[in-house]
């Protein structure tokens, strides 16, 4: 299947007076039509910057240093702003973390929804209204007729996120980018929104690029997962590969630092020591070396390449090298 979106060797930097902060440092990936790809990582790992780069919504201090983003034969990094506007919303849509700040407080829900419909689908007012009501019921909002006339502050956080999803769906996009869509919401609402995203994706057959720090959510909705650390991809594979045949020590560390509900209080959590590197002076070798419990001499000297360990699973770690000791392999899938 030809991919819908391909990102090649993308480098993005932010400018500050202290120097260049290299937020994304050479990533490659592809999103196929209809699939869910999750990008996981901690704050500052470059996952949100990647999403903003695809949408060309980067702040003015950021620039794309090199790389290309291919979407249906076009390189998004080269498009004019006018052309990009026609892609945003109708081809690729995005929902954000904070549903409060991403809605305009002075416009009604209806106005904000119909704006996109009229712009992208060129509907007249009556048809746009009808479609807006359909969209609201699609995202599980009752009485859509009344809701259209309400303002964002009259809705709760979960409702607002539903409205954001409806707005994103208005242009019938082929790719939906969800940047931490549930982080600002309460757990019970989180579950509702994730269910909703899943069911909508099935109904509309669009691809979903999910950006999150929550491995639990990834396990529930994603087909494939990409783990980012310090602006690079460290592991990339299907959900089963990543969770059951974890290769990279960072992925493994992330999984182990979560308490299991059945875990007893006597066992302490396996924390990852230290903190991520400062991307103002990114490490030349493996970025994880200072926190890695299995670091070897080479890890501090040469950066590991992303190498395939199956047709779908890739990992950037020297432990995969044939000369490395294989002791660590006992731990993966050890919870069987």
């Amino acid at each position: 299947m030809t991919p819908l979106l391909t990102v090649n060797n993308l480098h993005v930097s932010f400018h500050s007076y202290q120097g260049e902060i290299q937020a994304v440092r050479g990533i490659h990936f592809a999103v196929k039509p209809g699939e869910t790809l999750a990008i996981v990582g901690e704050s500052g790992c470059g996952k949100s910057v990647t999403a903003q780069t695809i949408m060309r919504l980067l702040p003015s201090t950021a620039k794309i240093v090199q790389g290309e983003i291919r979407y249906e034969q076009q390189d998004l990094t080269q498009l004019t702003e006018v052309k990009m506007e026609s892609i945003r919303g109708s081809q690729i849509a995005m929902i954000f973390q904070d549903p409060m700040t991403s809605l305009n407080p002075t416009m009604t829900i209806g106005q904000q929804l119909m704006e996109g419909l009229r712009k992208h689908l060129h509907l007249n007012k009556r048809l746009a209204k009808k479609r807006a009501e359909e969209l609201l019921s699609l995202v599980g909002i009752s009485n859509p007729h009344l809701r259209l006339k309400q303002y964002p502050h009259q809705l709760s956080g979960g409702m607002r996120q539903r409205v954001m999803i409806a707005i994103a769906l208005a242009g019938d996009p082929k790719l939906l980018i969800a940047d931490e869509p549930t982080t600002a919401l309460d757990v019970t609402i989180q579950a509702q929104i994730m269910e909703l995203l899943k069911s909508i994706q099935e109904k509309m057959g669009m691809a979903l690029l999910l950006i999150t720090h929550d491995l639990g959510i990834v396990a529930e909705v994603a087909d494939r997962v990409m783990v980012m650390y310090a602006g690079k991809i460290v592991e990339h594979g299907t959900v089963d590969e990543l969770f059951q045949h974890t290769k990279h020590p960072y992925t493994w560390g992330l999984l182990r630092s979560l308490p299991q509900l059945k875990q007893s209080r006597e066992e302490s959590l396996v924390a990852i020591p230290g903190s991520p590197p400062d991307l103002l002076h990114p490490p030349k070798a493996c970025p994880y070396v200072n926190r890695c419990l299995q670091a070897m001499v080479i890890c501090d000297q040469t950066p590991p390449e992303l190498t395939a360990c199956s047709s779908t699973h890739q990992v950037a770690c020297w432990l995969e090298h044939p000369m490395a000791s294989k002791e660590h392999e006992n731990r993966a899938g050890g919870d069987e």
């Binding site: 299995q294 670091a295 070897m296 001499v297 890890c299 501090d300 000297q301 000369m323 000791s325």
Partner: peptide, 12 residues
């Protein structure tokens, strides 16, 4: 590639 490169790092 040297075998020593794949020795674990001793760290504080």
């Amino acid at each position: 590639m040297e075998k020593e490169s794949f020795q674990p790092i001793q760290r504080n």
